[in-house]
């Protein structure tokens, strides 16, 4: 059992959870993830580490309440317990030697991109962050991101924060204005990563993406997370989750991520119905 120190709602569907896990905190590096199982009957879900404190022995994840398991996770109070947290899993991002980087985050992807930007910024790289959200109500980590870069471009799909546009627009504007990036790091929904990669390929800029396929064990024993990279089968949990974005088959990733949509919908509805009954009783 692992003590939950904090489980704070950041916006209506985003939650930040800090868990006491000293062994993981000591080893975690940007780009790595953990697998969490909330309760005895729960499923194992992969969540990227968005912060770690080796001295304090804690690990922080930021997650979206998108289905039954994450809704349940969000109900654990501070002082409550998680059944399991295991990690750090996956290869750490290769960030050494980068001098100028664009870090692109989409929605919850910003929580995953933030530790990478922070690491680069702290190690002397020049970092631009391009962060995109659907609307201004779901913007997260604005202050943290601003502190981890030289230039933060914050965009919303509907312009509700004043800067309307997609992250591809923001990135293109910076490149066209003369920014010379060694690398573009992009983390967000597969469709967003796909379009950013299409853009950077035109400019010939190396681009690293963080893949988010369905996972079970996270240690390489099942292949549920397999992705095609340059025509080869890779397991995102051990070979990734970072890959060369210009070699990834995003259409396949999106297709495989839809596999359990009916079952997920079903469980989520059951959860909401149970909640309503509880509420009405």
């Amino acid at each position: 059992m692992f003590l939950v120190k904090e489980n704070t709602v950041l916006n209506p569907n985003t939650v930040r959870m800090t868990v006491e896990a000293p062994m993981i905190a000591r080893k975690a590096k940007p780009g790595q993830f953990v697998i969490i199982r909330g309760d005895e009957k729960g499923e194992r879900i992969p969540l990227t580490i968005s912060g770690y404190d080796a001295a304090g022995g804690t690990v922080t994840v930021i997650y979206q309440t998108v289905g039954a398991s994450t809704l349940k996770l969000a109900e654990i109070p501070a002082g409550g317990y998680l059944c399991d947290i295991v990690g750090p899993l996956g290869r750490a991002s290769e960030l050494d030697g980068i001098k100028k980087a664009a870090v692109v985050g989409g929605g919850l992807g910003c929580a995953i991109a933030y530790p990478q930007a922070k690491y680069l910024h702290e190690h002397g790289a020049s970092v631009d962050i391009i962060a995109g959200f659907r609307n201004k109500d779901i913007i997260i980590l604005e202050d943290e991101m601003r502190a981890a870069c030289e230039n933060l471009v914050l965009l919303t799909d509907d312009g509700s924060n004043g800067h309307k546009g997609l992250v591809t627009d923001g990135l293109k504007a910076l490149i066209d204005a003369g920014a010379k990036y060694d690398v573009v790091i992009v983390i967000g929904p597969p469709i967003m990563m796909k379009f950013v990669c299409r853009l950077t390929k035109e400019y010939g800029i190396k681009t690293v993406v963080s893949m988010n396929p369905i996972m079970i064990d996270g240690t390489g024993m099942c292949g549920g997370c397999r992705v095609s990279v340059g025509g080869e089968m890779k397991f995102a949990c051990v070979d990734g989750p970072d890959f060369d974005g210009h070699l990834v088959d995003f259409d396949e990733l999106m297709k495989r991520n839809r596999m359990y949509r009916d079952e997920e919908q079903h469980d989520c509805n059951l959860f909401r119905e149970a909640k309503e009954r509880e509420h009405n009783a």
Binding site: K41, R44, S69, M221, C222, G223, G224, Y260
Partner: peptide
């Protein structure tokens, strides 16, 4: 391995367990 892990370890065949 994936198929058997879902069934045996995660008990996906039981409706009271969350793994699909």
């Amino acid at each position: 391995n994936e198929f058997l892990t879902r069934i045996n370890l995660m008990k996906a065949y039981r409706y009271d367990y969350a793994t699909p």
